[in-house]
Amino acid sequence: MSEGMEEGGSIKKFMYMNRKAPYGTIYALEALEVVLIGAAFDQDVSLAFLDDGVFQLTKDQDTKGIGMKNFSPAFKALGDYDVTKLYVEKESLEERGLTADDLMDLVYEDEDDDWAEKPSIRLVSRDELKAVLADQDVIMSF
């Protein structure tokens, strides 16, 4: 049990795991919608991007040629929804020929720190992500 639960009896640690690439299937877009809806409930929300999920965060996505909506700009709005912890697994990036420079620059503005811009993406190793997962109350996998 986390401390938060003992205190108010309501704040839980929610983790949304993203393991699918965007566009090829509907999972990535659906997960994002669930995150945006869930953000209304004032929980402690984290997102994890591992396996092909890291492809959701690549910069310069341009979907004009395939006639689908480019939903990657919505990740930039997550900070407005107080979703500020995006864990990205290093090994998943490396296996796919990507580095952190290939990802969008995602930031949030810290209201308690004079709206200072802070990075939302936290690069973690597989072991570190394992520890983050072990610390969650609820995990939803997409």
Partner: peptide, 14 residues
């Protein structure tokens, strides 16, 4: 297919 690369943000130098 180039349009699918562009949609996914994979530039041609990769």
């Amino acid at each position: 297919l180039g349009v699918d690369l562009a949609a996914r943000g994979i530039s041609e130098d990769k």
